[in-house]
Design a binder for these strands. Structure first.
Lengths: 154, 154
DNA sequence: GGCCTTATTATGAATAAATCAAAATAAGGC
DNA sequence: GCCTTATTTTGATTTATTCATAATAAGGCC
């Protein structure tokens, strides 16, 4: 019989990765990984809400602990957009970036412009060894552009 | 006789810009603009400390109000790096980006890689009209690379 | 130069996000 | 199944920021 929420296959994948990072496999970690995987760019609150569908009594603090730990191992990626609490996603190590709508706040994944991480080779880094380049595009999504002032029904 | 802290010339420049944005010219705004101009990437706390050398009784909240308002007019640019409160700078409208040292947290300006805003034309924006592209490089600065574990004097 | 309107600033409290320390629990090796 | 130690829980705490309201001052006008 399969596990409660996630398919056995994905659960196995997470378990293997957790072990590879020297972490124990717990239902909390699996539930958080599953939640973030199915709801990319979710904030801690939202992750907690999803996790509670399988673990009703988990506290927000515990979710924070797990999210922080998984981010440190590299299994999760944390995005910190302006005017929004931190968001999390399972898509890591593929150098993709993000676009945030200034209207509704929605966040979408955006692949790197040139494909091979052009932003990792800036002109002048003041002697810094660049390890990560996070790009955040901001603009108006198609929906918000269609109804620029829908809230002001004159 | 010149004004207290800033040169008359820069003060005049800020004043003109404030008026152009329909804002009144106040000593608080001038002091904040001057502080941010001389200490780029300063956080609100630091801006308040600098401003207090000329306006000793200004409260942190007032500094926040001014910073927020000036950011809305576009006279200041707000940077929100991970694991740091918001930072401010007077360099606006020149499409430059930032590099943050993962060791010491220092932030440096970085001009755009290709010069003409390559990051403004990503491959797939899901129908979004991109207005801004903020790039944050993270890596180890020369100083921190030189002494990787200076705190652990074993 | 002084007055008046209205923007701006000050004040104090409140909120949201995230972290921390210590106690309770459970994973996984034996 | 037991024991060690990682993990989770709990509750309090911190930090960054915002909000509502009252006090103040900028700049146009006479």
């Amino acid at each position: 019989m399969t596990s409660t929420a996630a398919s056995a296959a994905t659960t196995d994948k997470w378990s293997a990765q957790l072990r590879a990072h020297g972490r124990r496999v717990t239902k909390q970690r699996l539930a958080v990984l599953d939640a973030v995987d199915h709801s990319p760019h979710a904030v801690a609150d939202e992750v907690a809400a999803i996790v509670r569908t399988t673990l009703p009594d988990i506290s927000l603090q515990s979710v924070y602990v797990v999210l922080t730990d998984l981010t440190e191992t590299g299994m999760l990626r944390r995005i910190e957009p302006p005017h929004s609490p931190a968001r999390y996603e399972t898509r890591v190590d593929d150098n993709h970036h993000h676009a945030m709508c200034t209207g509704c706040g929605r966040i979408e994944d955006v692949d790197c412009a040139v494909g091979h991480a052009p932003c990792l080779t800036p002109s002048n880094t003041h002697g810094m060894t660049i390890q990560i380049a996070d790009v955040l595009y901001q603009g108006l999504c198609a929906d918000c552009a269609a109804k620029p002032a829908a809230d002001k029904t004159s």
